[in-house]
Amino acid sequence: MARLTVAPSHRAGFEKRAGIAAMCIAMALLPIGDAISKTLTGFATPFEVTVWRTLVQAAFFVPVAVILRRHLRGSILSVGSLVSALLIVTVTLSLVTAFASMPIATAIAIFFVEPLLLTLLAGPFLGEVPGPRRYAAVGVGLIGALIVIRPNFIAFGPIVLLPVLAALAYALNMIVMRKATRDRSALTFQFGASLSAAAIILVAQLVAIALGFERVAFSELPVWVFWLVLGAGALAMVAFLAITFAFSKTEASLLAPFQYLEIVGATLVGFLVFGEIPDGITLLGTAIILGSGAYVFYRERKHEVEAATSQPIER
């Protein structure tokens, strides 16, 4: 009986589509998790919400890592995972604190200077020096960020700069991840980073308690808040797994534009849940950031295609 075989080109195309689908799912889930985090800040401080979300995310990751253990390769705990954990905690705490005071869509729009910052940092840290056109696109994108930040700085104060800090930490984390996954699988790295982040945030919580900072007891909160915490952690875990899967199946430059779906989701969730509508200036700045980021990804994709076609064909 003849066996049905799949042509390599068809399989590659299927894997790319699967990666893109996983990225779209992740971008749809992240704004929902952000909305839950913003809701939780009505019951606890952003730091406590960050503690809850980080610990629950790590707890959900353990059984998933056991189920997918055949995909674990390399050491789980390392210096890279520890550095990544510190950066992840910085990203989460900065964004949750921003969500507590400003519209989700505005915070995410500012946060999306991250691809532009990554383009600048890739030179000194990864040796990937961008050309003058990409430098110009980064400059335009940062102007767009300033357009978003300026009126919101007047309305919300210095807290509007926290998404910029989150973007910088996330860009640095991407660099750490690129280097660390050279000798270990992406799942191994993500699992180690989640465990390390949980340990770091737990130590920080114990220090805060020792210093006498007040904290909210779960027993004093409505039961549904507990389910929201579980939901936020689960959504974060699923989203990061989907992103890890996407990058394992599809080139980063092809996936990158789909990350901007998060802004669409954040705007929609902000409107439906909190009645937040971005003003005209914010929308203008967001459009400039999106346009410059899309151009950076276009140039990166073109560069990869040119590099591939210039290589001699092996016989």
Rank of each mutant, 00 (worst) to 15 (best):
R178P: 01
F213P: 04
F99N: 07
T50W: 00
E304N: 01
I288E: 09
V56G: 04
R70F: 05
L162W: 07
I281N: 06
P158A: 13
A246Q: 01
A136C: 07
T92L: 02
A167H: 03
V6D: 00
A193M: 15
P130M: 09
L228M: 15
V148S: 02
G231V: 01
A287L: 15
R182Y: 00
T92H: 07
A21C: 12
A28G: 10
A198L: 09
R73A: 13
V96N: 09
R301H: 14
S185Y: 03
M237I: 01
G293E: 01
L116G: 12
G131K: 03
F245Q: 11
L168M: 08
E276H: 11
V83L: 15
P46N: 11
A180P: 03
E220S: 15
V264A: 14
F213R: 14
R11W: 12
E114Y: 12
I147D: 00
A107I: 12
W227K: 00
G270V: 02
A35R: 05
I110M: 10
T97A: 15
P222W: 11
V138F: 02
K249T: 07
I76S: 12
P151V: 11
S194L: 13
A234H: 01
F191L: 10
G157D: 06
V238N: 03
P124Y: 13
I108T: 10
E314A: 14
I25Q: 00
M174I: 14
Y260L: 12
G33A: 10
V83R: 03
L82T: 13
I25L: 15
V216W: 04
E128C: 02
V305N: 02
A7D: 15
P103M: 12
K16H: 10
V140C: 13
T282Y: 04
L72R: 00
E314I: 08
V140R: 03
W227N: 10
S94K: 00
R53V: 08
L284E: 03
A155I: 06
A136F: 15
S219C: 05
I288P: 06
V51Q: 10
V176W: 01
P46A: 13
M23G: 04
S84K: 07
I201D: 08
A155G: 05
T188M: 05
A166E: 07
L202W: 09
F218Y: 06
L261A: 05
L116W: 08
K249N: 13
G74R: 06
V56N: 02
G144W: 06
L211F: 13
V89Q: 03
A59Q: 05
L93F: 14
I243D: 07
F245R: 12
A210N: 05
I243H: 02
V225Q: 09
T92Q: 11
L268M: 15
I104N: 08
G127W: 05
A122P: 02
E48M: 12
F153D: 01
I147Q: 05
F61C: 04
Y260H: 06
G131S: 06
E300H: 03
F112L: 07
L187G: 02
I263D: 06
A136S: 11
L272C: 09
A232P: 01
R299Y: 02
S81P: 06
A136P: 06
A252W: 00
L195E: 07
A246Y: 03
A107Y: 05
Q311K: 14
L272I: 14
V148G: 08
A105D: 05
F47T: 10
H303T: 13
P115I: 07
V176S: 04
T267R: 01
R301L: 14
G33C: 04
G144A: 04
N152T: 04
P31K: 10
V216E: 11
E214S: 11
